[in-house]
Amino acid sequence: MSDKSSSNAYWAANLRIIGISLAVWFFCSFGLGIILRPALEGIKVGGADLGFWFAQNGSIYVFLVLIFVYAWRMNKLDLEHGVEE
């Protein structure tokens, strides 16, 4: 595989990881916190409705988990393409 196609494959994989991460975060923050909030009203978490919890806290926790998942996946991708630090 040439250097140019290897570089393109690396960046395509990187953009795929970023896109999936953004989609998960969008679904958790906008989808569960705003759009599906009325459907989640009956479920209580820490004294608040689950939709409110996702809008206030859940999306932040999901974002923190996504940071660690992204770092783990990028380290794995770097090793696969030989660009590790």
Rank of each mutant, 00 (worst) to 15 (best):
S59Q: 08
L36T: 14
G46M: 15
V62T: 03
A71V: 09
G58W: 04
I60L: 06
A71Y: 06
V45L: 14
I67H: 02
A55I: 04
D78K: 15
A48P: 00
P38C: 08
L66H: 00
G58D: 02
V65S: 03
G58Y: 06
G51T: 02
S59G: 05
I34C: 13
R37V: 13
N75P: 00
I43A: 09
R37K: 15
L50E: 11
I60W: 06
F54I: 05
A71T: 05
G46Y: 09
I67N: 00
A48N: 05
I43D: 06
L77Y: 00
L64N: 02
G51K: 06
Y70Q: 12
M74G: 00
R37H: 15
L79Q: 13
P38N: 08
G51I: 05
N57C: 08
L79M: 11
I34S: 15
G58H: 05
A48D: 04
L79N: 12
V62N: 01
P38G: 06
I43P: 09
F54T: 04
N75T: 06
L40E: 10
E41Q: 15
N57L: 08
A55K: 13
M74F: 12
A39N: 10
L40K: 01
P38S: 09
F68C: 12
L77C: 06
Y70M: 10
Q56N: 14
I67W: 09
K44N: 14
L79W: 05
D49K: 11
G58N: 03
N57D: 10
Y61G: 05
D49Q: 12
W72A: 10
I67P: 00
E41M: 12
I60Y: 06
Y70C: 07
I34R: 15
V69Q: 01
L79T: 09
G51C: 03
F63V: 03
F63T: 08
A71E: 05
V62A: 04
Q56I: 08
L79Y: 07
F63C: 08
G58R: 08
V45R: 02
G51M: 07
E41W: 11
R73I: 04
W72S: 05
P38W: 12
F54Y: 14
A48S: 11
G47W: 12
L64A: 04
A71K: 02
V62F: 01
S59R: 10
K76L: 09
A39K: 12
Q56H: 10
F63Y: 11
G42S: 12
F63W: 10
I35K: 01
V69R: 00
A71N: 04
M74S: 01
V65I: 09
R73H: 04
A48Y: 07
D49V: 08
L50T: 02
G58K: 07
W53A: 00
L79G: 04
G46R: 14
W53T: 02
D49T: 14
F54S: 03
K44S: 15
A39Y: 12
G51P: 08
A48E: 10
Y61L: 10
Q56V: 09
L40A: 01
F54G: 03
G46F: 13
W53V: 09
V45N: 00
L36D: 11
D78H: 14
N57E: 11
V65F: 07
